[in-house]
Nucleic acid binder design. Sequence first.
RNA 1: GGACCCGUAGCUCAGUUGGUUAGAGCGCUUCCUUGACAUGGAAGAGGUCACAAGUUCGAGUCUUGUCGGGUCCACCA
Length: 915
Amino acid sequence: MSELPPRFNFAEVEAKWEKYWEDNQIFHATPNPDKKPYSIVIPPPNVTGILHMGHALNNTLQDIMIRYKRMKGFETCWMAGTDHAGIATQNVVEKQLAKEGKTRQMLGRGKFVERVWDWKDQYGKTIINQLRKIGSSCDWPRTRFTMDPEYNGAVQHVFVELYKKGLIYRGKRIINWCPRCQTALSDEEAEHKETQGNLYHIKYPFRDSPNQFVTVATTRPETILGDSGVAVNPTDERYKNLIGKTLILPLVNREIKIFSDEIVDPTFGTGAVKVTPAHDPNDFEMATRHGLEFINIMNPDGILNEAAGKFTGMDRFKARAAVIEELKNSELLEKIEPHTHAVGQCYRCNTVVEPYLSKQWFVRMKPLAEPALKAVVDGTIKFHPDRWTKVYVNWMENIRDWCISRQIWWGHRIPAWYCSNCYPQARNNVYINRKGGELKENELYIENKFETRNSSINLQDAEPQISITQPICNKCGSDEMIQDEDVLDTWFSSWLWPFATFGWPKDNPDLKFFYPTNSLFTASEIIFFWVARMIMAGYEFTKDEKGNGQAPFKDVYIHGTVRDAKGRKMSKSLGNALDPLEIINEYGADALRFSLIMNSGQDLFISKEKFEGGRNFANKIWNASRLVLLNTKPENKNVAQPPPTDDLASQWIVSKFYITLADVSAAIEKYSFSEAENLVYDFFWKNYCDWYLEISKNKFTDDKIQQTACFILKESLRLIHPFMPFVTEELWQNITASTKSLSLESWPIANNKLINTNAVKQMDTLISLISAIRNVRSQFNLTPQETMECHFSAHDPYGKNLLEKNAETLKSLVKLKDFQIHENLPIIKDAVAGVVESIKFIVPLGGLVDLAKEKEKMQQEIDSAKKSIAGISQRLGNEAFTSKAPAEVIEKEQATLLQRKTRIDELQEILKNLN
RNA sequence: GGACCCGUAGCUCAGUUGGUUAGAGCGCUUCCUUGACAUGGAAGAGGUCACAAGUUCGAGUCUUGUCGGGUCCACCA
């Protein structure tokens, strides 16, 4: 045991315990038949990640829960790990390569992937180390990565199983294509943002009467080059007799027909829609129904191809301008209207996504969604706060198939194989430049710096074979099988996280003990990407002994977004991001945690100053502990129970502690973390420091006071520990001289016998009384040399007694020479006689009040109480009400009635006294 | 177009099933430093609970509408 330094050096303390916890691996959990499991899986941060405020909040919440449960005696496992984050990570490494003047194509696939692994090995630990800095008590030895070999096995297994069940298929669809990342994206990965654009009205002339037109409206005029029809609603009178007529497509001079389709909204634009089957999902559907031609006018990089005629080689946005210019010149542009609409953007690079026709792998979601939807509807899985349930249900009910193939290199390779004997193009499928010429592997077309390898284009007519290991062709027996070039969506591995991290699909003790997990903590943006899919995966892949699918967790806690003081999302590009590590350096990790949780009711508006609150509280705990430690004899430090005592304040603080304990536990159990923290804060600062320690300071020589103060301090440290693990651990070790970490100590055990309601009532009254006296003292600037006269009315059962009993302590608390106590009216006319003359005040509990006003208020209260009584009596006399209402409602009404009556008597008594 | 959330003190937010005097933190005003803590202590000012109507003896709380702010979903060509 060392003496506490006068100043809380959080940097030193945090470093010390971070190391101690790590060296002793005290958060490592193993299956333990004597304990109940409690497990949480971390939302695995991106390996490219560095800690931001969102992580800090997310992990603090999990840490509070897991530390609480650990202290409650559960075998707690908080699974740690990182996500390979396919596109994001590939982009980061590509950027790094670009600085060296290289592209991934220059390296070739094998070398590039090696390079990403190197990068991962070098930087992937950063975020893990940063999580330790904020005190996360993860099961670090278990730390997993979504591309670990075993994890890869689980992913491959899942793909094959779903394929066998017919839940994975390959199909040619319009998908979201990012021309910059040059990969397909899922619907969720295309973020729709309101964008100010234009609606271009373009005239399409009739073949047989070139001076007459049908006008169509479009936001993407460049797609005109791929048009193969014009659609109208069958009921639209304007166009009814034009159906079947032939138009000449401007700029291209292709003959296209007008046809009708229900999908067309006659109220939008002109009611006539240009149909571009290869570049719009609706048009694709219509074209399929009506047998239209699919004309792809664009290369995967967003540059127009040969089908674009004279616009070939132009970027899509340049082409848009050129097309408009050309249409203007030929007087086919009727008008341009400003138009705001939601435009999809790549969630990794914000490039506008292109609806693009290509062959991709999809997961059929409806069958998977069914049990996952049911689980949330019937309450097996609960969202906190509850309102997210609706968001989830709405998405699940309208779920669409999931595009899972990505045309990138970093990720889980798709276990699909093509026979290069049957499909010779498989051998040479690697690079195709935009001019259509083939390049051999590692050959480059440097001049224009883009070369596209795309098996989804090159092998779109080939039949794959699905197998984890390289198969033999089931048609020709050849062993020259070439694996699909594509990798899987990163979320196709994340959705297995709750069980793949425990070794699934191998049956093993860890999985059996820790799965299903208990709670999941994440942000609302992730509900569709991850939460929903984990629930589906859980039900599909993990079954209990009876063969029923299992929910991967029971509770989902959705926390708010961390924003700056102005309410903007924190982001690097805005430059408004507060770095948690800077906050830790300046205020300490405990302060960071505490202040984040304090503000975590909904979205958080964070500025640097907010962390002062946390720092101040840590400081307060430190100093209160110093006071107690400096004044407590060693033998009084480790009592197991607070000593029986007549001391009112001691009885009170012990009672308050156990009341707080129950409230805090309940708040954590219902995921009300800021409420729990507030309770702890109020108890420790207001009750323990401001009142108990202040009152007890002068009698600290008393053994029982020492024992009580020290006991409550220690129990408080347990209570605060999940919120502020570092400062509490340090103080705990100093007080107890223990060798056991506070993290492994038990949560305070409820002891309702020690809750003395009478003491609580008396002390609370005394506190109000003192506040009232201080109020008077302050109003009249009484000096410590003066004496105050206090008068009490006869119906106050506590005041006089309490004041007499505690006079000595109180004199010092309110800094007055003395009190003269009289049992009299609650009028201060004479109460501060000698100091203030003839002022009519009363000092009811709560402070100085104007007598006349007070009387008026009391009269008003009496009046309203009388009305209330009349109303309730009337209702209780009404049979229609009493026969229908449940017994407890009637009881409640009667209780209220009684309460009102008593209150009226009370008020009338006081008024009588005052007059 | 559909769904959801929010509007309470200068600011950020609590406010449980409707019920005596609507709370906290920060900020503000006044006072207080011979040792646990000025990262502190004491006292105080500050609210027509967005607006309107309704249900009720009684509404910050329930219902409807209006205005204002935000979020999510959607095949607005």
